[in-house]
């Protein structure tokens, strides 16, 4: 295109095709929302809010890029805003703080387990799920996005609004913590 020629913005994706494409990722988004909120009702609400925001902003989505990562970004932003609004806990998990928490073995300041938590944990009966559940949120999300959802480091950095170095650092610490958690869960389970 010659320099200086006026260029119109591309039309937003067709509503029906965008809806169909976006809903292909519903289970992944719901799983993420459930990990973050720990309550099925809150997870459904968060996912619905995410889809509405994505639909309204679909003109800003670049066709051919990673739709799932874009939806994750909206979901995580929505979640962070909600937490900030509710002032229930820290919004940003500072790497230093998270690292100290991980060394101490606490779960990032999460409240005591609710009945929903216990139900969720009962369903996650194997050692891997138990260990994942015990990771601080900032570590758990990075590990999950990389090793389960197979997102690139760059996409994870965008989704979580952190530098790429932080992604790599949290990934390394998260995996080590998870490894230790799996071993501990195995030791705790009578054979």
């Amino acid at each position: 295109m010659p320099f200086g020629r006026w260029r119109s913005s591309p039309p937003p994706p067709d509503a029906d095709s965008f809806t169909a494409d976006a809903l292909d990722h519903l289970d992944a988004l719901y799983g993420t929302a459930l990990r973050l909120t720990r309550r099925p009702e809150d997870a459904q609400d968060l996912v619905q809010d995410t889809y509405l925001k994505a639909f309204r902003a679909r003109a800003r989505f670049t066709a051919g890029t990673n739709l799932r990562a874009w939806l994750y970004t909206i979901l995580h932003n929505t979640w962070r805003n909600r937490r900030r609004d509710q002032s229930r806990s820290r919004v940003e998990a500072d790497s230093e703080v998270v690292e100290i928490a991980a060394e101490r073995g606490d779960t990032g300041g999460l409240p005591a387990p609710t009945p929903e938590d216990l139900l969720l944990r009962e369903a996650m009966s194997d050692d891997l799920r138990v260990a994942l559940d015990g990771l601080p949120e900032a570590f758990r999300e990075v590990v999950w996005l990389r090793d389960v959802d197979d997102l690139s480091y760059q996409d994870i950095a965008t989704v979580l609004s952190v530098p790429m170095g932080t992604v790599m650092s949290r990934l390394a610490r998260g995996r080590r913590q998870l490894h230790a958690g799996v071993l501990a869960a195995r030791r705790a389970t009578p054979s």
Binding site: A15, L23, D27, G31, P40, V47, Q48, Y51, F55
Partner: peptide
């Protein structure tokens, strides 16, 4: 992976 409960997809599609 966790599957979204039945009805969630329909409700969201209807909203959209």
């Amino acid at each position: 992976q966790i599957t979204a409960p039945p009805g969630v997809r329909t409700r969201i599609a209807a909203k959209l």
